[in-house]
Amino acid sequence: MENYVIVQPEDPNSIDARDLMELLSDNLQSITGDSGKNSFDVTDVTVPRSLFVIARNQQGEPIGCGAIRPIDTNIAELKRMYAKSKSNGVGTAILSFLEEQSLNFGYSQIWLETRLVNQKAVSFYENKGYIRIDNYGKYLNREECICLGKFLS
């Protein structure tokens, strides 16, 4: 049976959102030694042309999340991407939704940062058409970081 995933905008301050982001932080801490909490402020996804989404399964249970926020007029930054299951299309559904919404908001690119040691995430994004870009912003001159970007069409 086809996995059923619904992705929709939700309040980043909701209990489900906080629970998912806590799971993400724990996961990142175990993989990279950094929870990523210092790289995300919930107010970043409550400004115009930003969005926080939650993916839910057929039973309505929260199974993943993600967000976009503006870097500049043309570039959105992908934040807080997380899927409880790494194999049933949850991450792909979230990413596709956020890419579509980014286009609707008028962005031409999406950028993101993850850690080089987080090879599963790097491979996931590369398989979705993201390519390595120069490190930007707070990730400049940080060898443990990898920044990726994609032109939207």
Score class of each variant (00 low, 15 high):
residue 45 V to K: 05
residue 148 L to F: 10
residue 41 D to K: 13
residue 32 T to D: 06
residue 150 K to T: 05
residue 11 D to E: 11
residue 76 A to F: 02
residue 53 V to Y: 08
residue 78 L to K: 06
residue 129 G to H: 05
residue 123 S to Q: 12
residue 31 I to C: 01
residue 100 E to R: 14
residue 1 M to N: 01
residue 121 A to H: 09
residue 95 L to R: 01
residue 93 A to T: 03
residue 92 T to E: 12
residue 57 N to P: 00
residue 55 A to D: 07
residue 70 P to Y: 05
residue 40 F to W: 10
residue 88 N to A: 02
residue 5 V to A: 01
residue 1 M to T: 00
residue 14 S to D: 13
residue 52 F to Q: 02
residue 77 E to T: 12
residue 16 D to W: 07
residue 85 S to Q: 12
residue 38 N to I: 09
residue 127 N to H: 13
residue 78 L to V: 15
residue 91 G to P: 00
residue 13 N to S: 05
residue 100 E to T: 13
residue 20 L to H: 07
residue 4 Y to T: 07
residue 109 Q to N: 11
residue 18 R to A: 12
residue 8 Q to S: 15
residue 73 T to E: 14
residue 111 W to I: 12
residue 92 T to C: 04
residue 46 T to P: 12
residue 93 A to M: 07
residue 31 I to K: 04
residue 24 L to M: 12
residue 114 T to D: 03
residue 131 I to G: 09
residue 134 D to V: 00
residue 112 L to A: 04
residue 12 P to Q: 07
residue 32 T to P: 03
residue 70 P to G: 08
residue 36 G to P: 04
residue 15 I to Q: 14
residue 121 A to E: 06
residue 142 R to C: 07
residue 79 K to T: 10
residue 7 V to G: 05
residue 74 N to G: 01
residue 51 L to K: 05
residue 98 L to D: 04
residue 130 Y to V: 08
residue 42 V to D: 14
residue 115 R to N: 11
residue 22 E to A: 14
residue 104 N to L: 11
residue 102 S to R: 05
residue 110 I to H: 02
residue 60 G to D: 00
residue 91 G to M: 01
residue 90 V to N: 05
residue 50 S to H: 11
residue 10 E to K: 06
residue 146 I to E: 04
residue 99 E to D: 12
residue 125 Y to L: 06
residue 63 I to L: 09
residue 110 I to W: 03
residue 55 A to H: 01
residue 30 S to H: 07
residue 127 N to G: 08
residue 12 P to A: 08
residue 110 I to Y: 02
residue 88 N to C: 09
residue 128 K to W: 02
residue 81 M to W: 06
residue 102 S to G: 15
residue 48 P to E: 12
residue 5 V to Y: 01
residue 147 C to A: 08
residue 60 G to K: 01
residue 34 D to Y: 10
residue 18 R to C: 10
residue 112 L to H: 03
residue 24 L to I: 09
residue 106 G to P: 00
residue 91 G to H: 01
residue 22 E to V: 14
residue 145 C to K: 09
residue 129 G to P: 04
residue 65 C to D: 07
residue 32 T to M: 03
residue 14 S to M: 09
residue 84 K to W: 02
residue 118 N to F: 14
residue 148 L to H: 01
residue 67 A to H: 05
residue 152 L to A: 09
residue 69 R to H: 05
